[in-house]
């Protein structure tokens, strides 16, 4: 099959980008989308041009490195699929494909399709963990966890941190990402001691990074390659509000001792 690509090219963070047109010839329907780009890039290098820069690593949909807007849709047309797992059989022969980087103020473009997603790491650093210093743990089976809770935690923990939720959101909100971590840890008994603090700190960090607010468009859930549910956002909101109240109570009770 043959395709016409329109790709966002931008040499650096401070330069203006443009859409460039490339022809992708003799594409096999069994190729992955990134393999198709590999072939285009080989051609560009042979022609003495800079290949299209894009992030990718595991190419099996788990590392979360890859991600681009394909015809305006984060990760392209297949539901629950990261870009690296998207296959060319999804496209029609002769189609035009528009490829752009994630769109978000909080994800500045580094080059072409490569963006800086460091804000997501900072949200985790703000509180997306359970403080359990190495070495102090009790026997694992001393903490029974109801299977349903464990399954809920795992559903949320499946997030690969790709940022598609942000790119898909008309508000550029990172709520699904943040909520997934709050839900994963909040569903488990081990996560309870820091539950309030975690919700407070992660949500405030998310706001300070320049992400927009959630108005429940639900686009994030549609774009998520791991199909994480916006139910997690309800959980985040509950924990955030609850923790705000709890913080006030703590202040009221506290004194100078």
């Amino acid at each position: 099959m043959n395709l016409t690509l329109h790709v966002w090219r931008q040499t650096g963070p401070d330069t203006n980008g443009t859409m460039e047109r490339y022809e992708a010839r003799d594409v096999s329907p069994d190729m992955s989308f990134l393999e198709m780009l590999d072939v285009v890039n080989e051609g560009l290098v042979e022609a003495g041009q800079m290949p299209i820069a894009f992030d990718h690593d595991c190419r099996e949909g788990i590392c979360g490195s890859c991600g681009m807007m394909i015809n305006g849709v984060a990760h392209g047309p297949s539901k629950g699929t990261a870009t690296c797992q998207l296959h060319m059989r999804t496209f029609e022969d002769g189609a035009s494909v528009y490829i752009e980087p994630w769109r978000s103020r909080a994800f500045p473009v580094i080059k072409d399709l490569v963006v800086n997603r460091g804000a997501l790491d900072r949200i985790i650093a703000a509180g997306g963990f359970i403080s359990a210093q190495t070495g102090g743990a009790q026997d694992a089976n001393n903490i029974p966890v109801a299977k349903q809770d464990s399954d809920d935690a795992m559903d949320a923990a499946a997030c690969i941190g790709c940022g598609a939720c942000v790119a898909a959101c008309p508000n550029g909100s990172a709520s699904l990402f943040t909520a997934a971590k709050i839900s994963h840890l909040g569903a488990l008994p081990q996560g309870q001691p820091e539950r309030n603090r975690r919700a407070q700190r992660m949500v405030l960090q998310m706001d300070s990074e320049g992400f927009g607010h959630c108005t429940l468009y639900g686009e994030c859930q549609e774009a998520c390659p791991k199909e994480i549910s916006i139910d997690t956002i309800a959980r985040m909101n509950r924990d955030f509000v609850g923790s705000t109240v709890a913080a006030r109570e703590e202040k009221a009770l506290g004194g100078t001792g």
Binding site: G135, P144, V145, L188
Partner: peptide, 22 residues
């Protein structure tokens, strides 16, 4: 054996039986 203990303490959602054990 310590690894499993450590990971559970961190909140790694290992598969569980209905009784809540690993």
């Amino acid at each position: 054996v310590n690894i499993i203990d450590q990971c559970v303490a961190q909140g790694v959602p290992f598969a569980r039986e209905y009784g809540g054990l690993l």
